[in-house]
């Protein structure tokens, strides 16, 4: 219950931001940070809780983005329905990649490479297929009405992405409290031991992959509606695979708030550097690199993980201090 309460407080605090902040630049920054946090939370379900490090979450992000865009522009489907279909399609891609990779028993770096390969294949297909607009990409027609999933005000976009992030946070929290989540963590910690205890490792990993893909696909669909443009390099580019992976790593893998904290930290630093140095291309990536090195060196469990480690250490010290007292009583 404590976890859900904390989520409610955090989400409420974020929801209050547009009441105070009216700057479009700030709101835009927060929308993008939350978008990355959402994609990262998707990665976190599979990578953080399940220990399956994907390097190709662009496959799901891109599918979410393209399906949302293509259904609207080519088939005249309502944007919200397109968005839902994008999530479904992203999940389906997750199911296919997951079935193939996990059936083949791929683990660790092999799994990472295969997911990367899938994302790259999709990127190449999308850059030549006429239905996606091939190399030109696809513009979504401006239609600033809520029923078209477009909003006049940034604040409304912000609240929509915040709602999506809230759902993802609740999902992660439920994962931590459920049998599915416990089994997923068991698979991460030791797959053989988990199987010996009755855990169907394949199904658990596949389920996590589908859930993970759905969350990241939602981020992709939102991206399409927010920027009204999709091309192969954006949708299926490695940039999003990297961001989806880095934010939880920086914030804390396998924690509820890790991706959100990581996304805010990474984006703040990236934007901060841009302010100082101007728009030097690739600078944000260099900053990510440097940040990753620092995180791995000094806070290997991420920012949220570091706090948990400290509180654990304090708890243990308290327990240790209490233990001799108890023995004295028994003696």
């Amino acid at each position: 219950m404590k976890g859900f309460l904390l989520i409610a407080i955090v989400v409420a605090a974020f929801a209050a931001v547009p009441l105070v902040v009216h700057s479009n630049v700030t709101l835009n920054f927060l929308v993008v940070a939350l978008l990355i946090a959402l994609a990262g939370q998707g990665w976190n379900v599979l990578g953080g809780y399940g220990g399956q490090y994907s390097f190709g979450h662009a496959a799901f992000f891109g599918t979410g983005a393209y399906v949302t865009a293509v259904l609207q522009m080519r088939y005249g489907v309502n944007a919200w329905i397109g968005f839902a279909a994008g999530i479904a399609a992203g999940s389906a891609v997750g199911a296919i990649v997951g079935t193939l990779a996990f059936r083949a028993g791929l683990r660790s770096s092999y799994f990472a490479l295969v997911t990367l390969a899938f994302a790259e294949v999709l990127r190449i297909l999308a850059s030549v297929a006429p239905i996606t607009g091939a190399g030109v990409g696809m513009l979504i027609k401006l239609d600033l009405r809520a029923q078209s999933f477009q909003f006049q005000s940034r604040a409304l976009f912000y609240l929509v992405i915040l709602a999506l992030v809230a759902v993802a946070l609740v999902t992660a929290q439920m994962l931590e409290r459920s049998r599915f989540g416990a089994w997923l963590i068991a698979v991460r910690e030791n797959e053989d031991a988990a199987m010996a205890l009755g855990v169907d490792a394949f199904s658990i990993k596949l389920g996590a992959m589908v859930l993970s893909a759905a969350i990241t696909a939602a981020a992709g669909g939102f991206y399409a509606q927010y920027f009204l443009f999709v091309d192969a390099g954006i949708a299926y580019g490695t940039w999003i695979s990297i961001e989806a992976l880095l934010t939880p790593v920086i914030g804390g893998v396998g924690t509820v708030f890790g991706p959100l904290v990581g996304a805010l930290a990474a984006k703040s630093l990236g934007e901060g550097a841009k302010l100082v140095t101007g728009d030097v291309p690739g600078l944000d990536l260099m900053i990510y690199g440097a940040m990753l090195v620092l995180v791995i060196r000094f806070v290997p469990h991420g920012i949220v993980g570091a706090f948990a480690d400290v509180s654990d250490r304090i708890k243990r010290r308290v327990l240790a201090a209490r233990a001799p007292a108890r023995e004295a009583v028994h003696g």
Binding site: N190, D192, A196, L197
Partner: peptide, 23 residues
């Protein structure tokens, strides 16, 4: 497969212990 046997009521321990170390 092992998980199905476990469901049938078969449990085993490992000679080289396999704890879920992080838990």
């Amino acid at each position: 497969p092992p998980h199905r046997l476990a469901r049938r009521g078969m449990a085993r321990t490992f000679q080289i212990t396999k704890p879920f170390a992080g838990l």
